[in-house]
Write a protein that binds this DNA or RNA. Structure first.
Ligand SMILES: [Zn+2]
Ligand SMILES: [Zn+2]
Ligand SMILES: [Zn+2]
Ligand SMILES: [Zn+2]
Lengths: 131, 131
DNA sequence: TACAAAATGTTATATTATAACAATTTAACT
DNA sequence: AGTTAAATTGTTATAATATAACATTTTGTA
């Protein structure tokens, strides 16, 4: 478990304390006062943080959240729930699900080493608002 | 089952006959000879085609493929296998998987009405190349 | 200290996607 | 056929997301 570099730490801290997924340019804006001035500095840190599993990219939103699953140090099996109304994103930590998907074999014989799953719906809060 | 408009048909035909996912600007380039000149014309057709389930967006690639599953008219339960070497993408049609995921309930009580799953690995061809 | 790997800094540019507004076509209803 | 609303199209401009290329600095390690 390596330590984070300066830029990586700054950007991880920001994402980790955010209650919602952050987009790259929103991150850039927020860390400019800390000396990170260019998009590439942000993207490089994001790439590394994703690679080591400290954050995940929510592909459908082009946004990043801190890993909420302590055992998920390498991002090879990720699942999220996304509220289509308030955009709240939660990482799903369900061993039944991860076992099922990790063991899944398609009929084409391809063996998978990674997956990403995104569920969409309405969170409890938003469901009750609409009823 | 509505008919497609002119632009929608042109763009669907292109995607449908492509052996690989197509990106929006690659589509634009390819349909310019047919009178579609602006990105927005492409994106609007793509949006509609996704909405009615004729094509799917591969989120991790920002690319689009025709639905390979005749029963998948509304894109609410999609799963794909993606080769990380040759980038071949296949839509997975597995009733066991779709049943499992459609019925999946998280402990937070959120009920999902849609999901997208992307598996990554090496296709048979690419596995044998490397061995 | 010397070396290699990783990280940083910087400018420019590529790629993906939407805003805003006007005009035209299509479909449904008198 | 005439009226109307919805969907689609056309067009220009711009926003948002992401990478290329190159030089320099820092870090870990022999
Ligand atoms: Zn995680
Ligand atoms: Zn919500
Ligand atoms: Zn499909
Ligand atoms: Zn392959």
């Amino acid at each position: 478990m390596q330590n984070l570099s300066k830029n990586q730490q700054i950007i991880f801290d920001l994402i980790d304390k955010s209650p919602e997924p952050l987009k790259a340019y929103s991150i850039l804006f927020n860390v400019q006062k800390r000396g990170i001035k260019a998009p590439l500095q942000v993207y490089r840190a994001l790439d590394k943080l994703v690679e080591i599993g400290k954050i995940h990219k929510i592909e459908s939103r082009n946004a990043f959240i801190a890993c909420q699953n302590s055992s998920c140090q390498i991002s090879k099996a990720t699942a999220f729930s996304i509220c289509e109304s308030c955009e709240k994103v939660t990482e799903i930590n369900n061993s039944n699900l991860s076992k099922y998907l990790t063991g899944f074999k398609d009929k084409n014989g391809m063996k998978y080493n990674k997956y990403n799953l995104e569920f969409f719906g309405l969170c409890k809060k938003c469901v009750s608002k609409k009823s």
